[in-house]
Every structure is written in structure tokens, then in C-alpha cells.
Simulated scan of single mutants.
Amino acid sequence: MIEMIIEQRRRSLGGGMEVGRVLPFAKRRMVGPFIFFDHMGPMDLAPGIGRDVDVRPHPHIGLSTVTYLFSGEVMHRDSLGTEQAIRPQEVNWMTAGRGITHSERLEHARAHGDRLHGIQAWVALPTEMEEIAPSFSHHAGKDLPQWSDAGVHGQLIAGSAYGLVAGAATHSPLFYAHLDMEPGATAEIPFGHTERALYVATGAVEFDGARYEAGKMLVLGAAASRVKALERSAVMVLGGEPLGERFIYWNFVSSSKDRLAQAASDWKAGRMKLPDADDAEFIPLPDQPAPPAPAMS
């Protein structure tokens, strides 16, 4: 059963970089702990592209970013000293906790040209873990279990599903997987979680007798269900247990509006450390309605 259909909305990140934003949506802010879901590309990048397509250093609190690529390469640098390229079918999992800054640079594309295509999701942290120490982990190979069955080639990105467990340390019950489906193939969507969704990244699928094209997220009920590929399709399946109300301001997520205001103040005042290997520039606090001022102690 489909509870809601969410269609991506195109958003410019500047410098010619454009994404399809799916979550948050006005009528559906989260699916389980997933609070943000951006579809990057596909985008052909010519050698010599300018640095304006890069994502300059910026901050996060209260979440984990989960970056997964179908094609292309992105260089990640953060305030913990991490410098890690991510390539297709790999995962960069960055937990912001009480605060981290990072950049995402398209250095490979600048040197060689590239086709960038992937998904970045944010996973909110449980209330009692929102202020944990920041961390970063990179996952590939055995950390991301793969399987093939009747025209479905799957890769588990995070959490547990299909009898498998991915390598990234998660902080609440969830699943997140990439299904590469041949025409006519059908796949089960993991159940057992309160909230679930599937996102059609490429191709077209059939669900409950209706056709759905790329760029649509189907928010599902809890009952068992299956999806059929009508053509070669990349389908992301995700879900988990809800964490309660969360607020978003820019790149910050929290259960407390006061904490958002404090993070915004810290960034504006330069109190958040920039990446050591990428500290010459940063994205300023946006000119948008500010969160409430921090409560006085």
C-alpha cells in the first residue's frame, strides 16, 4: 500500500550543480530516521570544470550523512583530518554528532572529466545521541554485502535487510539498499520496520499495478510488498523506526530549536573548525529565516 508519492524537486547548489531533492517534503518530513534525500545528477562534467561546482566546507550537527555513488568520484575532507575519495558502489558515512565540517570536491572530474550520479541521504540521530563525538568511516567490498537473484542485483548500503548486515555503525534500526533490476525482475521490499519507502533512481517500475518513473519516492505501509522493473532500473529501498520530531535549519538537524540556533551562531562566529586540508574558504550561513535565539541558561 502506498501512503504517499513524493516527486523530486530540482534544486541548484550553485556553480551548475543541481540535485533532485526528495526529503524533506512538506507533507512528509522523514521516513524512519531518514530526514534528507538528494539525488545528484546524472551530470556530465568536462575536464577543467571550475571550482564553483565543488561543495565548499560547511557544517553539520545531529545527523549522519550517507553518500553513495552510481558513477563518478568525489573527494571528502573533514575537520577530523579525513581525506577520502568515494567511488561507485562505496559509502562514506559521516556522523556529525555535536559538530563536524567537511567539503566535497570534484577533483577527479576537473582533471579527467566525469559522470557524477549518486544519492546523499541524512539519517537523524536518536535524541540521546545527538551530541556524540563526530566520526567518519568509509565502506567498500565486504562491508557492503551484494547478492544476485532472478535479475535483481542488490547491494546493502546500511543497516540490515535480506538476511545481511552492512558494515557502517548505525545508531537506530534501519535498512538502506540499492537494487539494480533487469527488465521484468521483481524484488521484495524489506518489511518489519514501521516506515519504509522506495525511490526510483533510473528506469521505471510497477507497484500495485501502476507505473512509476524515475524521480519518484513511494512511501509505503508496513505490509509485505514487491516491486517489478518495467525496464532496467536502479531502485533504492529504505526505512526504519521513527525517532520523533526533528527540526532542520540549513545543514543542522536537532530535536531542539535552541540547539539549531546555537549551531548557526557558532558557524557565523567562526567557532567551528574547518578541515585542516581545506580551510581557505567556506560556505557562509545562508540569508534565510534564522532559527530562534538560544535559550538563556
Results as ranks from 00 to 15, higher is better:
residue 165 V to G: 06
residue 168 A to T: 02
residue 169 A to I: 15
residue 169 A to M: 15
residue 171 H to A: 13
residue 173 P to N: 04
residue 173 P to I: 03
residue 173 P to S: 11
residue 174 L to V: 01
residue 175 F to S: 07
residue 175 F to Q: 05
residue 179 L to Q: 10
residue 180 D to N: 12
residue 181 M to R: 08
residue 186 T to F: 11
residue 187 A to D: 07
residue 187 A to Q: 10
residue 187 A to T: 09
residue 188 E to P: 11
residue 188 E to D: 15
residue 188 E to I: 14
residue 191 F to K: 07
residue 193 H to M: 11
residue 193 H to G: 04
residue 194 T to K: 14
residue 196 R to I: 05
residue 201 A to E: 01
residue 201 A to G: 04
residue 204 A to E: 07
residue 207 F to M: 14
residue 208 D to S: 13
residue 209 G to Y: 01
residue 213 E to D: 09
residue 213 E to N: 04
residue 214 A to D: 01
residue 214 A to F: 02
residue 217 M to N: 05
residue 219 V to Q: 01
residue 220 L to D: 00
residue 221 G to I: 01
residue 223 A to Q: 07
residue 224 A to L: 06
residue 225 S to V: 05
residue 227 V to G: 09
residue 227 V to D: 10
residue 227 V to P: 05
residue 228 K to Y: 13
residue 228 K to S: 13
residue 229 A to I: 08
residue 229 A to Q: 12
residue 229 A to S: 12
residue 232 R to I: 00
residue 235 V to C: 12
residue 237 V to E: 09
residue 237 V to T: 12
residue 239 G to D: 05
residue 241 E to H: 03
residue 242 P to A: 12
residue 243 L to N: 05
residue 244 G to W: 09
residue 245 E to G: 10
residue 246 R to T: 14
residue 246 R to E: 08
residue 248 I to D: 06
residue 250 W to N: 11
residue 251 N to H: 08
residue 253 V to Q: 08
residue 258 D to F: 08
residue 261 A to M: 14
residue 261 A to D: 11
residue 262 Q to G: 12
residue 264 A to H: 10
residue 264 A to Y: 10
residue 265 S to G: 15
residue 265 S to P: 03
residue 265 S to N: 15
residue 266 D to P: 00
residue 266 D to G: 01
residue 267 W to K: 11
residue 268 K to M: 12
